[in-house]
Design a protein around this nucleic acid. Structure first.
Lengths: 123, 123
DNA sequence: ATAATTGTATATATCGTATATACACAATAT
DNA sequence: ATATTGTGTATATACGATATATACAATTAT
């Protein structure tokens, strides 16, 4: 499990977990059928409560990215690679629409936003 | 006062207020020296507690966008237009660096992000 | 002076996040 | 079969951020 939790981040821990795992799944880094670490192990490794891990796993389940079976474990769902690409864009776009409303409120044109974005991307 | 509060938004009310007012100031829509509405009036108009308004105004003060004088009111700070542009970019860029980390985590290149951004901008 | 208008401070309620601990289900060893 | 271990689940608690109402202090207008 390759996860970095930041306590400094304004994002809640379960959200950080969710985002990083879902990104790994949708990049194909975690194959379909692969078993996520048991929540106790993940919790211990990340020095976090099992409830927090569970909450993240629940979000993954809700998004159809994993299948949870009580007593067995949590398994990465199977996707065609084109499907993965679509879902990935969908998730990013959804967030982006939110983000963009903020940029727009400052009266920035899309050209200006793109210029700033290039800066932001290199940070 | 031209403000839209959404209770559905995941952003806290005071944050929405802060963002919208600061955008208006930095777009030059609210001129330097202009007096913001008294917190009670703003609170009544927006159907929100005066504490919530105060919290937003405090953030504006902290960012140097307004000057608060007890018993008198809150006044928009004076800026040169080039200064306004700089501050505006600064604020947007700061937020953008945050947003971009999410896009990056999905392994998207900057070109892909720009394409999605164009879509998001038209929504 | 005093009343009205402005921002400020204190105490309270509610909700989301995070936690520990006890519970229930499934697989495995005996 | 059944006891043990490993898995996810549910309940109760703590804490912090957000939002509120009400009382306080400073300024202005009369």
């Amino acid at each position: 499990m390759n996860i970095a939790i930041s306590n400094a981040s304004e994002k809640p821990i379960y959200q950080q977990l969710f985002e990083q795992i879902s990104a790994q799944i949708l990049k194909g880094e975690l194959e379909g059928g692969y078993s996520l670490p048991p929540i106790r192990q993940a919790a211990k490794e990340l020095r976090v409560s099992i409830i927090t891990v569970k909450k993240a796993w629940e979000e993954l389940e809700r998004c159809g990215l994993i299948n949870t079976i009580t007593g067995k474990g949590c398994f990465v769902a199977e996707f065609l690679s084109e499907e993965m690409g679509r879902i990935r864009e969908e998730m990013v776009l959804k967030q982006m629409v939110n983000d963009v409303s903020y940029y727009k409120s400052f009266g920035l044109t899309i050209e200006e936003v793109i210029e700033l974005l290039k800066k932001a991307y290199t940070v």
